[in-house]
Design a protein around this nucleic acid. Structure first.
Lengths: 163, 163
DNA sequence: AAATTTATGCAACATTGTTGCATTTACGGA
DNA sequence: TCCGTAAATGCAACAATGTTGCATAAATTT
């Protein structure tokens, strides 16, 4: 039997009932009637502490023990469905996820501009730019929208000036 | 040897020097110094006559003889690089292509809103809604943008009223 | 018509994501 | 605290979309 680099179930049970660190995340799950599992707590913790939306690879790198890819995808989709995180599809092969700011109450995070840096490939949420209703041609109705601005972020622009 | 449902090379050579139908498309290619091949002419003809951007499947369905998937992808990318068509990535698994309105001169088609119908899955270009420069935080610079509005198109809304 | 350059087809591979099914875990109640 | 049940996980396999290397075929140049 291999040694798994992860807490055993019993220790985990103690942890998520005692540690203050994860309390917020555990509360979100319990409040929504979602089962509290190691994978989910770890995943939400990572997203909670992230300053930028993360993609599947970013998340895997931060996990103490990588669960099956399938499980990760399933939990990401699950959280999106439960409005705890939101999904940002930048292009065909880059999908990021971010904790909803309003996860504590039931409200959805309003749609907003996402900035994608073509140098560091980081995504930045810009909620100050909400997405409006557009005046569409007769007969078209707007349900949801996506606005992605591609460019160079503040940090990468600073780097460029230096060199 | 199998019978291929496509014109043989010689007939093709005659065709693209005599037929008026494809002339415009052949002119675009020649003007840009791009080799005129059956695959390319057929592909551009399909995109030229399309009322909506088409995805790879749409295109394959309309081709008289489906070329290798690789060739299709290569030619699509090639045309995008040469600014003859533009690419619209709606989500992770739906990429469409559309002939640029301004393909006859060198100008690029300005960035514009794309509408995606969640019922019929058709994409509609809405050049009347150009994409502006956004007022981004200090240090961020905008290079390109993408605005996708998801909803129900005029035709599908009409269908809904009927039923 | 031959030489040269480019496009194509084929096989193989990469990435992202999904499905079915057996096993394990979480959690409410005895 | 243990037990039963429903849900989560891991594994294997598959699907969709797109890419790369290389040999062959076709398009242009001379």
């Amino acid at each position: 039997m291999e040694t798994v680099d992860r807490m055993p179930p019993k220790a985990f049970r103690e942890r998520h009932s005692k540690s203050a660190e994860d309390l917020a995340v555990v509360q979100i799950l319990k409040k929504k009637g979602i089962r509290v599992t190691q994978n989910r707590v770890e995943l939400l913790d990572i997203l909670k502490d992230a300053r930028h939306p993360l993609n599947q690879k970013d998340i895997e790198e931060q996990l103490s023990a990588t669960p099956d890819r399938v499980t990760l995808y399933r939990n990401l989709r699950f959280f999106v469905d439960h409005k705890i995180i939101h999904k940002i599809e930048i292009n065909g092969s880059l999908t990021s996820y971010s904790l909803n700011v309003s996860y504590l109450d039931e409200g959805h995070t309003a749609e907003h501009l996402h900035f994608y840096c073509s140098i560091c490939h980081k995504v930045t949420c810009m909620p100050q730019h909400g997405i409006k209703k557009y005046d569409l041609p007769e007969g078209f109705s707007q349900q949801s929208s996506k606005l992605i601005v591609n460019g160079i972020c503040n940090i990468c622009n600073k780097e460029k000036i230096k060199s």
